[in-house]
Simulated assay, not measured.
Amino acid sequence: MKIALFASGNGTNVESIIRSVETGQLTAEISGIYCDVATAKVIGRGKKHGYPVYVFLPSDYQSRRAFEEAIVDQLQQDQVELVVLAGYMRIIRYALLDHYTNKIVNIHPALLPQFPGKQGIKDAYVAGVTETGVTVHWVDRGVDTGPIIAQEPLKVDPNWELAELEAEIHAIEHRLYPAVLQSIIEGSH
Rank of each mutant, 00 (worst) to 15 (best):
S8E: 09
S8H: 08
T12D: 10
I17R: 02
S20M: 06
S20Q: 06
L26F: 14
E29R: 08
I33H: 04
I43Q: 04
I43V: 11
V53Q: 08
Y54N: 15
V55R: 00
V55G: 00
P58I: 00
Q62H: 14
Q62T: 15
E68T: 01
Q79D: 10
V80N: 05
L85V: 05
A86E: 07
A86L: 09
G87T: 05
G87Q: 03
Y88S: 05
Y88W: 13
I92W: 02
N102D: 15
I104M: 07
I107W: 03
P109S: 14
A110G: 08
Q114F: 08
Q114I: 00
F115L: 03
F115S: 01
K118I: 14
K118N: 12
K122T: 08
D123Q: 07
G128A: 13
G128Q: 14
V129R: 12
T130R: 13
V136E: 11
W138A: 13
V139L: 05
V139Q: 03
T145H: 08
P147V: 10
D157K: 06
P158M: 14
A163Y: 08
A163C: 06
L165P: 05
E168T: 03
A171V: 05
I172K: 06
H174K: 14
A179I: 13
L181S: 09
S183M: 08
I184M: 12
